[in-house]
Amino acid sequence: MGYQLKMRVWRGDQSGGDLGDYTVEVSEGEVVLDALHRVQATQAGDLAIRWNCKAGKCGSCSAEINGRPRLLCMTRLSDFDETETITVTPLRTFPVIRDLVTDVSFNYEKARELPSFAPPPRDADNKRRMAQVDVERGQEFRKCIECFLCQNVCHVVRDHEENKPAFAGPRFFLRYAELDMHPLDTHDRRELAQGAAGLGMCNITKCCTEVCPEGIKITDNAIIPMKERVVDRKYDPLVWLGNKIGLRTKDNDGRTEP
């Protein structure tokens, strides 16, 4: 059964903008992106929306719905009361381009700062080997669709623009953790994670985990393990002593670069 949905959609660009009111007919089973497309088709032909797969896998349609960072294509209208007005705004951490489209290039700059996977030389038969159990460890991190909702909700940059140069954000802590736990990666990522990527800025308030549409336990499985690894490397005197006298060697298992 269809009904008339009331929406408020942010329209504007960096010179200014406001929430515009729209009433649009929607049907059972639709998502917020469907409603916005109908607004675009019937009332606001110039409404800018970034979208692609409509299946929660491309990470393009990130926005804020009733103040919560979510994917437009994965937010069902049935989650809301039919009389409720749904408010849609662009991501509030990144520079707005127009309407619901923001400039997320901050994230690509941070991606470039992260040294890529550095495997050791191949075995004699020209292959590299790792056990299944070690492969499985990083699979959760590979589910990331780079929607940047975690980057958007993180208060370190959301509320403090000045932190952007020094802070990589949850998505990239995920990548740091994935590589640091990778048995074939030869880099030591710990120093870099704490220094250049600003892991110490994170105060583990878990909003990144709350908004992840893939359900990745970013804080528990990536950020906190990475923080513990940084403690090993930088702050724990017993670990330092153990490394010096050769009693603790497993931390550097497979690492060849400092």
Binding site: Q14, G17, G67, R68, P95, D159
Partner: peptide, 19 residues
């Protein structure tokens, strides 16, 4: 700075969460 910074979408409210 923050959500009211010059490049961000101009929204007066600190949050639009109704819950």
């Amino acid at each position: 700075t923050g959500v009211h910074g010059p490049t961000r979408a101009a929204i007066d409210e600190k949050t639009l969460r109704p819950d």
